[in-house]
Simulated scan of single mutants.
Amino acid sequence: MGQWALLWVLVLATACYLALWPGQVVPTVANGNGTRPTLVLDAGHGGEDGGAVSLTGVPESTINLAIVERMDLLLGLCGRTPVVLRQSDVSLHDPDADTLREKKASDLKNRVMAVEDTEHGVLLSIHQNMFTNAKYHGAQVFFASTDGSQEWAVHTQEALRQAVDPDNERQAKPIPDTVYLMNHISCPAILVECGFLSNPEEEEKLRSESYQLQLAAALAGAWLQYEKNL
């Protein structure tokens, strides 16, 4: 078996393990009629808005999209069809937006609209962290104020710890009120900062396809576990 074939087997095994993981009971979230939710995958930033830039010059938007693409593929192999807000390096702004500021504002409003227009939508937004001190590392999950978001975030944070980084002691936290997307939707929503682009060791991992796959498997598995309790 080739290296990549073996890696895919290990990644799928991780996702399946987390989906069946009995270590935590995930509280249910009522959606009014028992209909299974639709996962919306948001790769943060895109186009002219690359987000944070890694130590080696890679824009956050590229890494965000790579992880979302792998999540989409893994979930597809598990029989799920998530809604993916962007599938290439583009901004989702209206054509009449001219300046970068206008494009960012339009992009965020259109993402909100897309999430809100998704019937029984549930949002997972992928981002990368950055800080002035290079010592900080580790994925962290933030949750919206909507019903069910905190439980999903806590579960996802633990899944990331178990599957990707056992030494990560970070805890899920409420999203700051400055994050437009997460504060203008009405559905359950989490935002995952997958790691710090300002930490040399973690930045190298975040740029690697194998680590992106590991993150995607952990996030997909956590969602499948959470979903089956809805």
Rank of each mutant, 00 (worst) to 15 (best):
P59G: 06
A52L: 13
T38N: 12
G32Y: 12
T35R: 13
G50W: 09
G51L: 05
G51E: 07
P59T: 09
G46P: 02
Q24W: 07
P22Y: 03
A52I: 07
V58C: 10
G50Q: 05
V40A: 04
Q24I: 04
G23Q: 05
S61M: 05
L20Q: 14
T35F: 09
V29I: 11
T56D: 11
H45I: 04
G32S: 12
A30L: 12
V40E: 03
E48Q: 15
G23L: 00
L55C: 10
G34T: 09
G57N: 03
W21I: 02
D49Q: 04
T35S: 08
G32P: 02
G34S: 05
G47C: 01
W21H: 07
A43M: 00
G50F: 02
G23S: 01
T56Y: 13
G44T: 05
T56H: 10
V40I: 06
S61L: 00
V25P: 00
G44H: 00
G44M: 01
G51S: 09
V26R: 01
G50K: 06
V58Q: 08
L20T: 13
R36E: 14
G46M: 02
G34Q: 11
G34N: 11
A30D: 15
R36P: 08
A52K: 12
P59D: 11
N31Q: 15
N33R: 15
T28R: 15
R36V: 12
L41G: 01
P37V: 08
A30R: 15
A52G: 08
P37R: 13
L39V: 01
D42M: 04
V26L: 03
A43R: 00
A30W: 12
L41C: 06
G34M: 12
V26F: 02
W21A: 06
V26T: 03
G34W: 03
L55T: 06
L41H: 06
G57I: 06
E48M: 07
P27H: 08
S61F: 03
G51F: 01
T35H: 07
S54V: 03
P27G: 11
A52E: 08
L55V: 10
A30F: 12
G23W: 04
W21K: 00
A43I: 05
E48P: 11
E60L: 09
A52R: 08
V53H: 10
V29S: 13
T38H: 03
G32E: 04
P27Y: 10
Q24F: 05
V40H: 02
G32Q: 11
T28K: 13
G47W: 04
L39K: 00
T56Q: 14
T56F: 11
E60K: 08
V26A: 00
H45P: 02
L20D: 14
A43D: 05
G44V: 01
G47Y: 02
A43N: 01
V29M: 07
T56E: 14
E48T: 12
T28H: 12
V29A: 08
G32D: 10
T35V: 12
L55G: 10
L39F: 02
L39N: 00
S54E: 02
G47I: 04
A30G: 15
D42T: 04
A52D: 06
G34V: 05
L20F: 14
G57R: 08
E60F: 07
T28Y: 13
S61T: 09
P27N: 13
D49T: 09
